[in-house]
């Protein structure tokens, strides 16, 4: 009798215990509904997070027996490979800075209900949706020595002989402006539309002219958005690939990190080395993003005081 009673008693204790665990989990938002996120989580885990980790691991396993850091020492020891970092910065940094700086005045002018805003936005979305390959193909014809760009400049008497814009960094940078500027502009526009115009009105009632309104009110409020815009623009430009091979000089000054990685993978079939280059590229992107966001927090903290 005592033997048969014990399991009943233990169940009576365990029952509410188990229920309460489920309840406690449910209180924190963990219940069966979360299973709905399982397929997507698994997908991202298997085809994004795992490959990323796999790439890092692979980079420490060189094909030749040169030690775990062999690929990295090879990359930084080879002037051609090492130079791809400089090449990438020399193309990506001017392009990203130009795109963001050019986006600000246009976004200021286009802010609010400007006539034809929708048409302008639609035109700007076209290069984004066409993609870099088509833009590069168009620029190949457009920027050539006999292309319309040089012809117009020569007909206008601005230049004596055609500018050499292809097969060097200019072509690559111009393609990054054509696809990157609309991106930077539309992002900036969505950030500037989020700023309450009453802020400037308040500044105006205190006697601030348009410049001071912009410089002391709009711009500080826009800085956090601009930092994100710059990060995204920079990362886009930093990973430039098809236009670098099509418009640039992929064996010279347009030998950017993405070209180096793709060539290593598909011409030399050295996937560990290609992964190494990818890891280096990702690390540099993270460093730049971290620096910009770090600066942003400092800048923003100093100027929000007037936001009140």
């Amino acid at each position: 009798m005592t033997l048969s009673e014990t399991p009943v008693a233990s169940e009576a204790i365990a029952g509410p215990e188990r229920r309460s665990l489920r309840h406690r989990l449910a209180d924190r938002g963990v219940d069966r509904l979360l299973l709905l996120s399982l397929p997507a989580s698994l997908f991202v885990l298997v085809f994004f997070i795992y490959p990323s980790i796999y790439g890092v691991v692979l980079s420490f396993r060189p094909l030749k027996p040169v030690g775990a850091f062999g690929n990295y020492t090879h990359f930084f020891g080879d002037p051609f490979l090492r130079g791809s970092i400089v090449n990438t910065f020399r193309i990506a940094l001017p392009a990203a800075i130009f795109n963001v700086l050019a986006a600000i005045p246009l976004a200021v002018v286009m802010r609010g209900a400007v006539k034809g805003q929708r048409i302008i936005n639609t035109i700007l979305v076209i290069p984004i949706s066409l993609g870099t390959v088509l833009v590069a193909d168009g620029l190949l014809n457009y920027l050539g020595p006999n292309g319309w760009f040089n012809r117009v400049l020569m007909a206008a008497g601005l230049i004596g002989h055609p500018l050499q814009l292809l097969h060097n960094q200019w072509g690559v940078m111009l393609s990054l402006v054509i696809t990157g500027f609309p991106f930077a502009f539309l992002l900036t526009l969505s950030y500037i539309s989020g700023i309450d115009p009453k802020m400037e009105s308040a500044a105006a009632t205190l006697g601030a002219g348009p410049w001071r309104q912009f410089w002391h009110v709009t711009l500080p409020l826009l800085v956090p958005g601009l930092a994100i815009t710059f990060c995204l623009s920079f990362v886009l430009a930093f990973s430039v690939f098809p236009s670098a091979t099509m418009l640039g000089n992929p064996n010279g000054d347009s030998h950017v990190l993405a070209v180096a990685a793709a060539n290593t993978a598909f011409q030399q079939y050295d996937f560990p080395m290609a992964s190494t280059i990818s890891v280096i590229a990702a690390a540099i992107e993270l460093l730049v993003i971290g620096a910009v966001l770090g600066l942003r927090s400092r800048f923003y903290a100093g100027t929000t005081t007037g936001k009140g």
Binding site: F47, Y54, V235, E285
Partner: peptide, 17 residues
């Protein structure tokens, strides 16, 4: 992350996989 990170950075390990 998969949206922010440019495809070329994780594309090669993904292709290898």
């Amino acid at each position: 992350l998969p949206i922010m990170v440019p495809p070329i950075t994780y594309g090669i390990p993904l292709a290898t996989l």
